[in-house]
Design a protein around this nucleic acid. Structure first.
Length: 274
DNA sequence: TTTATAACCTGAACGC
DNA sequence: TGCGTTCAGGTTATAA
């Protein structure tokens, strides 16, 4: 499920219940996620106080004085704040009981997510091997039209594929890549190296706008993280192209085209996007 | 170095 | 109703 806005919404949703709390018990029910959840997680995290939760790309970093728990939600992961007495259901893989009497529960049917313990030095500098080659945050100042123009010059790949390359910019998944390219009026299959600086300015601005709007929309659902039923905190996207192949373009009314690009469903308007 | 493809899993939706 | 097929919002490893 989660793209960057959902991960950020998750962070904001659980932080009030987790920040400042000590972890009294860690229960790993299923350790075979994207990478194995090792014993060091429970050993190191138990007894620690979580000082804050940061986000880098789609990773959540639970900071403690002794290191950090680094978590990725993969394609189907979610977190909820629950009463520890609530029995686990299928795919509830990890529980973290807090000294508040509540519990943070990790659920992930497809098990594409991951949970690591990282030592204090790596945690302080974000030098973990999964973090240290990531591109800039899309909502930060380092991400701009000038940056995109610069990194695209020698590339012979479609602009949408480049936008989803986490080494160049993090957090732009399939949904928001489609949406941002529509907003910027750029065809997803246009080669990255052939797009002008001015158009990259529009694209960078569109990426920021689309992501910020989605994060804002997530704000209305924060309370869902403490509900027992249903999946937490995800919101209905207001999407203009994704999932709408064949339907009329919201701008010109022509049917939206759907193609496969780098194995991912890609939707665009052949008239509005050039 | 850049790009393409396979792989990790399960579940939902769809067609027959 | 049941079964097989396809697809899913992520990311890395490996091959070309």
């Amino acid at each position: 499920m989660p793209e960057l806005p959902e991960v950020e919404t998750t962070r904001r949703g659980i932080e009030p219940f987790v920040k400042g709390r000590r972890v009294t018990q860690v229960l790993v029910r299923e350790s075979s996620l994207r990478w194995p959840v090792t014993d060091s997680l429970a050993q190191s995290l138990t007894g620690q106080r979580i000082e804050r939760i940061d986000r880098r790309a789609k990773y959540l970093l639970f900071r403690t004085g002794a290191g950090s728990m680094m978590m990725h939600l993969g394609m189907s992961g979610s977190l909820r704040i629950l009463d520890p007495a609530i029995p686990p259901r299928a795919h509830d893989h990890v529980d973290m009981v807090l000294d508040s009497g509540r519990m943070l529960r990790y659920t992930d049917p497809r098990r594409f997510g991951s949970i690591f313990w990282i030592d204090p030095d790596s945690a302080a500098t974000d030098s973990h091997w999964l973090l240290n080659e990531l591109g800039p945050e899309p909502l930060g100042e380092a991400f701009s039209g000038a940056y995109l123009f610069d990194v695209s010059r020698a590339r012979k790949v479609a602009v949408k594929t480049m936008l989803m390359n986490s080494h160049l910019v993090v957090g732009v998944g399939n949904i928001y890549a489609n949406e941002a390219l529509f907003a910027a009026g750029i065809r997803p299959d246009r080669l990255a190296g052939t797009i002008s600086r001015a158009r990259y300015d529009r694209l960078a601005e569109a990426v920021k706008r689309v992501l910020a709007k989605a994060i804002e929309a997530g704000g209305t659902t924060l309370r869902d993280f403490v509900r027992e039923d249903g999946s937490p905190g995800y919101f209905r996207h207001e999407l203009e192209v994704y999932g709408r192949g064949g339907e009329p373009c919201v701008t010109c009314g022509r049917p939206l085209r759907e193609i496969r690009l780098a194995q991912r469903t890609t939707v665009f308007c052949a008239r509005c996007q050039r």
